[in-house]
């Protein structure tokens, strides 16, 4: 029988997990040129929630963990050289020819729109993991130090219990269908910004009528064959590879960045007091297991 047994119910384990996931952060920015358009993004992500299931095979699964894009700044630049409103005849000649035309003009140069998509979400649809204890020896610890020396210098050894992912599956970024309107409005605004400020409203509307439905313009230029929402989700998730990056980052984080549980070794059971050194107990043979009911941590007291 182990000297020490600690158990945490599924409820307590869920809270422990939530505490670990709360400290996850992921930031990334990237840009790419895709020919007719270029895009860039900057994201910061945190995790929240999730539903726990403990398994009898020494693993647990977390499902429906929200991946919240606290920041998702997306910039889309449509390169529109040669996208021109054709001239139309102002002074026709009597033979249906044209003498003077409304000058055709081009919506030239890059039109860039900044979309603040903060608040979008994805999900860890499934994370399966076991627990793995690790013994951490602070590399800054000097060879001649006792455990107390190490503690007083802030370099004590640690027992750590990490979540050891077996797999992590992240869903595509959930872009709402209303992104269509948001993007259309943003592009429309960007086009409007190309117009001189003195241009009267009716003239703007006339020009916009010549341009036709912006959504058609966008889908045509971006080569969108599905909905804008699906296109954007695919762009961010797959083309930029955010989903894969997130899966890797999440797995790496749980496996080695933030332990579920850690404590100093030797473990202080009585604090320093009245000039007396703290009393520290060496912990050996730490093991962490999971069954369908609870997490169990067992250890021995060293001699």
């Amino acid at each position: 029988m182990s000297h020490i047994t600690i158990a945490a119910s599924a409820k307590a384990f869920q809270q422990l997990f939530n505490e670990v996931e709360k400290n996850f952060s992921f930031t990334k920015s990237d840009s790419a040129n895709f020919g007719p358009f270029s895009a860039s993004y900057s994201v910061s992500v945190h995790l929240s929630g999730g539903n726990l299931q403990l398994n009898n095979d020494n693993t647990f699964e977390m499902q429906d963990v929200d991946i919240v894009f606290g920041t998702l700044d997306f910039k889309l630049c449509l390169d529109l050289p040669g996208f021109c409103i054709p001239s139309f005849c102002i002074v026709p000649d009597p033979w249906n020819g044209c003498l003077v035309g409304f000058p055709g003009f081009c919506i030239g140069g890059p039109i860039c729109v900044d979309l603040n998509l903060s608040g979008l979400t994805s999900q860890i649809t499934d994370l399966k993991a076991s627990l793995v204890p690790k013994y951490y020896v602070d590399p800054a610890r000097l060879a001649g130090w006792t455990d107390l020396d190490a503690e007083l210098n802030g370099h004590s050894n640690q027992w750590q219990i990490y979540i050891d992912p077996v797999w992590v599956n992240v869903a595509l970024i959930d872009v709402p269908a209303t992104i269509d309107n948001i993007l259309v409005n943003a592009i429309t605004n960007a086009i409007h910004n190309l117009f001189p400020s003195w241009l009267p409203g009716w003239a703007v509307d006339l020009i916009m009528a010549f341009l036709g439905p912006i959504v058609d313009l966008i889908t045509s230029l971006l080569g969108i064959t599905t909905s804008i929402a699906e296109w954007l989700s695919n762009l961010l998730s797959n083309v930029f590879g955010l989903v894969g990056l997130l899966e890797t980052a999440i797995a790496d984080y749980f496996a080695s960045k933030y332990p579920l549980y850690q404590f100093e070794d030797p473990f202080p059971v009585l604090p320093a007091s009245g000039g007396l050194i703290p009393v520290k107990i060496p912990i050996r043979n730490l093991a962490a297991t999971i069954d369908s009911q609870e997490m169990i941590v067992q250890a021995n007291v060293g001699a």
Partner: peptide, 16 residues
């Protein structure tokens, strides 16, 4: 289970 009726359980064996 250790936590059938609680959320956290801790035990120290006499040798420990």
């Amino acid at each position: 289970g250790y936590t059938d009726h609680c959320d956290l359980y801790a035990a120290v064996q006499e040798d420990g």
